[in-house]
């Protein structure tokens, strides 16, 4: 078992090497990505500033607290660009042209393989600028970060990444039945935009949806509350358990889909 795990990470390293050199062929992209990140951030900050102009606040969050939410959103967006989008869009394609068979006959965990097969360096500017923005708000606010809140932040961020990944993966998995499901991921992405703002800024109905139907709260608001020190320990534990449960569910769902795929396709 440990040998298998070792080999898959070696494999992924090899995959990432080739995908990075492939991507770096396109120099234009670096330029585009940097401009796009700067533009996106300044645009989002501008919209936020409109809300705060009249001294109002979003759902009880101050300006700098909302900026932290936006920063976390930017980090997750970068991860989506780098890992989720390039890999999970391939699943659909592989089901379509039948190359999924080649993956399934390999002696490695197919979910890990499919989820980490390629990496795109173009999400890195987003990830970096997200972290920079968080650091900046803390320097400006002259707040001191305790090691404890950094730890809590890391825990909640990891659980938010797991949740995000599971949502993407579950939708991508459905492509085994509905080959043209890819746009469902676009739907997911478009709803996740709500994560740019604290969830408590939404009306009660939407708050309910974003907490219980689509757990966007756990993606950005919860990690932000963790680093801002305004969160209860029980919510953190709940968020972790919830993410692990989703991860587990995504795996079960994948195995179920595969058994369907291998028995149904000819």
């Amino acid at each position: 078992m440990s040998k298998l795990n070792f080999s898959i990470f070696r494999l992924i390293k090899a995959f990432w090497n080739t995908s990075i050199s492939k991507e770096l062929e396109y120099r234009l992209n670096l330029f585009i990505e940097i401009i796009s990140v700067i533009g996106n951030l300044s645009g989002s900050l501008f919209v936020l500033s409109i809300f705060y102009k009249g001294g109002f606040n979003l759902g009880g969050w101050t300006w700098s607290e909302s900026v932290v939410v936006l920063a976390i959103y930017t980090i997750l967006d970068g991860l989506t660009t780098s890992i989720l989008q390039p890999n999970l869009s391939r699943i659909v394609q592989q089901v379509q042209d039948g190359t999924l068979d080649f993956v399934l006959i390999k002696p490695v965990n197919s979910q890990i393989w499919l989820s980490l097969r390629v990496i795109s360096p173009w999400g890195i500017p987003s990830i970096i600028s997200g972290f920079l923005l968080i650091t900046y708000t803390f320097i400006i606010g002259k707040k001191i970060l305790s090691l404890y809140s950094i730890l809590l932040f890391c825990l909640t961020l990891i659980s938010s990444i797991f949740i995000l990944y599971s949502l993407w993966f579950i939708i991508a998995t459905t492509s085994i039945w509905f080959v043209r499901i890819w746009n469902a991921n676009e739907v997911l992405r478009s709803v996740l935009v709500a994560g740019r703002y604290p969830i408590s800024a939404f009306p009660a109905g939407l708050r309910f949806v974003f907490t219980f139907l689509l757990p966007i709260t756990f993606l950005t608001s919860v990690p932000a509350e963790a680093i801002l020190g305004k969160i209860s320990l029980s919510l953190i534990i709940f968020s972790l358990l919830f993410s692990l449960a989703l991860l587990f569910l995504s795996n079960k769902f994948w195995n179920f889909a595969i058994s369907f795929y291998t028995s149904a396709s000819s």
Partner: peptide, 29 residues
């Protein structure tokens, strides 16, 4: 491609999400 187009139509909900925020924020007063 009607199924995709349907999903694509749904993915254009950004203005509706923004309506949620604006209606709650009350800045507009």
């Amino acid at each position: 491609y009607r199924a995709e187009i349907f999903l694509w139509a749904i993915s254009g909900i950004l203005p509706l999400i923004m309506y949620g925020i604006w209606s709650e924020a009350g800045v507009s007063i």
